[in-house]
Design a protein around this nucleic acid. Structure first.
Lengths: 303, 303
DNA sequence: ACAAAAGTGTTCCGACTACACCCATGT
DNA sequence: ACATGGGTGTAGTCGGAACACTTTTGT
């Protein structure tokens, strides 16, 4: 019923136009609404010798907080949604001011609405995931004195408890999430709880402790990683992380990083064959056979 | 950065505790936040002769609006999120007051944040999908004079435009959504636009016209149907619509209705074999062979 | 007897797995 | 020569699709 407050009842005799003309918003307390951005990219880490390929890694953009609360800690980029922009417009604006990027893949992830997730006041945050190709990307200096950097991520399963009872089961996991840039190492422990009780399945997720990661952002990151992980298997989402032209090995590496498992080259190539087209160009000057460069097939089959 | 307003900058010298103690929420204008519920169930329609089984149908709970705007039209159940409850708590509360049901499957769907989606004021709505077993279900009278009813749904593809250009393509579809209860027939035309431009894929959805369906709820319904449609193929979500014990044919019908296609019994039974267990009981007194009753397997394999 | 649904066995096909093998390059 | 990655062919396996067929009931 999308918002009917009790004073409406008095107005049944008047027209809708009259109603709207005299409508009074009222002074109910309202939560603040923000968007939080998860900007992922693939970047090359190191190149040990002239033969080895550079090892790519998935990285996440974070901002060091320049004010209270969580002063000095790292948080997801984001900000308040203003009254005259949609959620997605707010997300794109935020993204643009942070990265200078425009017109990139953006997907709404989840809306976080716990009562005390922000110590200042009630804040509801709608999270968006953006996937960018790092090749052209240079971080903007940022609005104020805020500092932005890319972090690579690691997950470790710390503990798993499984409790099976008559009508279902409960699985509790503690997962450690570690973020690393060149100099700092942040970490958090997140507890996920999956319960099946009769037909009813429900999930919850909670930050147990966080070191250097502001707010409840650690669990948002974990949630995004899981989404990415599952979506890479049944969509072409991974292509959003690739530059214009790429080798199939590079593409496969991206699938492996996001999917979290090694793939066999032969099978992989067959699977994505229809999604790409050859450009006719080749990479060269590596200590091994040159590699065909491909481009995304503009009329690839529906995923 | 989850909500940093500029006055923070002045406080860098004070402690976080001091900051929070003196924090002033400010009088920025804030959007209102609501939850909208999509309550789906499977109900039996008709039973033409003693031999035929009753034909089940997917139905959606809607509420007739008792006040402006959209007076007399039908809307999704929902309401404002108050300051001391989480989004999910608000959704469960709404669900309980509407149906009397507690502890059922609930899933956050999407958060709708267009600026003018509510003619009164800026309203951001977080939509939740609930799946209930209709067998035990009786609608509550409802809080005020509001009227609640179940509607079955039909979709018709009205128009499809496909435009292929150099670096991608655009697909525009106009879909008519029809809702029917015993007496009324509501309808709406929704336009979905999927564009692929280089690597960037984006989607938008818009209500072109609505008859009897309030706000932008027609597109929320369409979105939920699509989610249900795709999730039935790779999760066990359909079981949430089933009663405690059920026949495999009934289960298959649910899969067929939600998935939108006929299935072969042999293949279906093999596929879900591990998710169910026999109860040892049988249905009877139908004009055909009795049917085993099954129950959901409490330790079914992970989906 | 027969209509309707319950339930099972068998064959076919396509997609993915695993592995073996050859190709091309820079040092 | 050789390490490294690029790239392809083939045999095996698994699950789903299609179809045929048997079983069981109430009227």
């Amino acid at each position: 019923m999308d918002g009917s407050r009790s004073e409406e009842q008095k107005h049944e005799q008047i027209s809708e136009q009259q109603f709207l003309a005299t409508y009074n918003v009222g002074d109910y307390e309202r939560p603040s609404v923000t968007v939080d951005m998860l900007v992922f990219t693939i970047r090359n880490e190191t190149q040990s010798n002239y033969r080895k390929l550079a090892e790519p890694a998935l990285q996440l953009l974070m901002i060091r907080r320049g004010g209270h609360p969580f002063l000095g800690q790292w948080a997801l980029p984001g900000g308040f949604v203003s009254m005259d922009e949609s959620l997605e417009e707010a997300a794109r604006r935020e993204l643009y001011t942070e990265t200078g990027l425009d017109n990139i893949y953006l997907e709404q992830l989840y809306t976080w609405g716990d009562v005390r997730r922000d110590p200042r006041t009630r804040v509801i945050s709608c999270s968006y995931m953006a996937l960018v190709d790092s090749s052209e990307l240079e971080l903007e200096a940022g609005d104020d004195a805020s500092e932005a950097d890319w972090f690579r991520m690691e997950q470790r399963l710390v503990e798993e408890k499984r409790h099976i009872h008559e009508h279902g089961r409960i699985t509790e996991r503690q997962i450690q999430l570690i973020l690393m840039n060149g100099t700092e190492e942040l970490s958090a422990v997140i507890e996920t709880k999956e319960s099946i009780e009769g037909r009813v399945r429900s999930n919850s997720i909670r930050v147990v402790e966080a070191q250097g990661i502001a707010f409840d952002h650690a669990k948002i990151i974990l949630y995004a990683l899981e989404r990415l992980h599952s979506k890479v298997e049944y969509t072409d989402i991974a292509f959003n992380l690739m530059p214009d032209t790429f080798t199939l090995t590079a593409l496969q590496k991206v699938y492996e990083i996001i999917g979290g498992k090694k793939l066999l080259a032969a099978a992989f190539r067959r699977k994505i064959a229809d999604w790409v087209v050859e450009t006719g160009e080749y990479t060269g000057s590596a200590g091994h056979r040159p590699s065909r460069l491909y481009r995304l097939n503009p009329d690839r089959p529906a995923t």
